[in-house]
């Protein structure tokens, strides 16, 4: 465990104990199941963001891609009559295709990722609205509940799926050429390119690989609600950054921690949970999340400026 992760783990642990002590229902089986589901959901959305952040970019269209995946799932099941697992795969593929479009715009046209994904955010959102014409698919079979409602060892299946995804992420960044090159690209793109890394390809791949995770979260959403909600994804942007940044994925690129992402999600979810228990006005939630992002960025900046040098 790295030094950063230890600090995040401590915060997450304190929050967990705090929540457990202040509410009798917190440790109930249903609440733990539910939290595991929300945490898993947050991790997937944040990982979609983190995979792009780590390569030095950002993806403002994660939520819109989640929306695309949501209606794709509904369309495939209800209109095309595909089995649920196949519909889910198609949704993941659509997510990847949307990400590929982002990646091509960014690497081929040399447009920075903020502008490119800001534009596609609206394009994809428009497609979601236009395609579904405001009509929600409601005829989702009862069996399509594997990810969203079923559990294993008391925790949501989505949670275990997320654990697998995080283990794969950890392995990729710690041990594989691909992961190390992605980190190098985010750390210093020009130096990476001059060291023989095809940085454009790495950036393109980061944009293709991350949206299927957002799509997976979207599919889980359909599975949980029993119907594709057209508004899925519209509120993902802020939490995707909040969890990633609290979890130690720097905004500047070159850093990522799978464990940190999990702990970051736990922190954000418990803080939201805590706000509800404290009966804080839920309409202020975005203000809280925004402040948390700011705080996390300031803390990491201060650490870079003062703490990091001590090892020299």
């Amino acid at each position: 465990m790295r030094h950063n992760d230890a600090g995040i783990a401590l915060s997450a642990g304190l929050l967990f104990v705090g929540c457990a002590l202040s509410s009798e229902s917190f440790l109930s089986a249903y609440n733990l199941f539910n939290i595991s589901r929300i945490v898993a959901f947050s991790v997937l959305v944040a990982l979609a963001q983190a995979l792009v952040l780590v390569a030095g970019g950002m993806n403002l269209s994660v939520g819109a891609i989640g929306g695309l995946a949501t209606i794709t799932t509904g369309y495939c099941i209800q209109v095309l009559g595909l089995p649920g697992w196949l519909a889910a795969l198609v949704a993941l593929g659509i997510g990847g295709a949307a990400g590929w479009i982002n990646g091509v715009i960014i690497t081929r046209l040399q447009i920075n990722s903020f502008i490119a994904t800001l534009a596609t955010l609206f394009v994809f959102t428009g497609l979601v609205h236009g395609f579904s014409e405001g009509y929600a698919y409601t005829d989702i079979p009862r069996e399509f509940t594997f990810l969203g409602r079923q559990k294993f060892l008391g925790l949501s299946n989505l949670f275990w799926t997320m654990v697998l995804v995080l283990l794969a992420t950890h392995y990729a960044f710690r041990h594989t050429v691909f992961g190390r090159r992605l980190l190098a690209t985010g750390g210093n793109q020009e130096a990476a390119r001059l060291a023989g890394i095809n940085t454009d390809r790495m950036i393109l791949l980061s944009h293709v690989l991350s949206p299927p995770l957002a799509a997976l979260a979207a599919v889980a959403g359909v599975s949980r609600m029993g119907s594709p909600q057209r508004a899925t994804g519209t509120a993902w942007l802020l939490p995707s950054f909040a969890v990633a940044i609290v979890g130690g994925t720097g905004l500047a690129g070159g850093r990522i921690s799978a464990l940190g992402l999990l702990l970051g999600a736990v922190i954000i979810v418990l803080i939201k949970n805590g706000l509800v228990m404290l009966e804080a006005n839920v309409y202020y939630e975005q203000a809280f999340l925004g402040s948390i992002i700011l705080l996390a960025v300031v803390v990491s900046r201060v650490r870079d400026l003062y703490g990091g040098r001590s090892g020299g």
């Binding site: 190390r180 980190l183 190098a184 750390g187 210093n188 020009e190 130096a191 990476a192 070159g254």
Partner: peptide, 12 residues
């Protein structure tokens, strides 16, 4: 600017 990943290890 171009020769090193400054925040990475000597090993990397």
């Amino acid at each position: 600017e171009e020769g090193l990943l400054l925040e990475s290890a000597v090993r990397t």
